[in-house]
Amino acid sequence: MSSRAGPGFSLRVTSGLNSSEWTGKTKHLPEMRLVPRVALFPTCLVDVMRPAVGFAAARLLEQAGCAVTVPEGLTCCGQPAFNSGDRKTARTLARRTMARLKDFDFVVIPSGSCAGMMVQHYPELFAPDTEDHAAARDLAARCHELTQFLVRVIKVEKLAAEFPARATYHDSCAGLRELGIKTEPRQLLRQVAGVSLTEMADAEVCCGFGGTFCVKYPDISTRMVDKKVEKIIASGADTLVAGDLGCLMNMAGRLKRLGSDIKVRHVAEVLAGDHETPPMADEGGDAA
């Protein structure tokens, strides 16, 4: 149950996907609206590196009965500034982002890291009892990581997708520890026909990406991803799945450099049944 959706809120997908109905009231929503307006925040990495993830997320949201918008004028959530100690820039970008996302019932992000920034850290950026703080709290209440939104808010119980894969799921740190995402992606993956899940050891241990960490401390980062890759391979999975593109790029990059043929995909791609996009850092990926 999401505590962030506001009191009394409930949205039910009654039979499969596509049919939804509102019951109850929420301070964010007019009582009778049948279709929640969702802003999809694509994240910088999805925007530049892998639009397929954005489209997969959009498809999942539309199938769940949401009206999806990608708002104009979005840039970055400001996390790189925040984590580099530049609070001033982080605040500026947070204000911009909050302004552009204020008119939506929900903001959904295919990344635990960027969602964690908005949900956990935006409110920390502003002094209590300021308008900015109120806006940050308001956004935090409406903002969700994709799998968490589908499971906790929409309560999706059946996905239409089919995707043959023996998959192992890596818990990205921010999603796991800032947002408590653990069961949601696995619950959804089990709904996809053809997916069998196998747990790797230490699924909750960091892959060594860490944003700028991986280029500031490349040797340590490499040692960390080596340990991760060892566990991924030992799991016997043919597909590595996670919810954050940064971590995925790191793990895919190391797997491929080591000559592994394990396929690497964002969880949204698998949930949406996107077979067409080649796996990350894989043959044909440049021809998509």
Partner: peptide, 8 residues
């Protein structure tokens, strides 16, 4: 030590 995935 790592490949960088190509963009789309």
């Amino acid at each position: 030590t790592r490949d960088f995935p190509a963009a789309q």
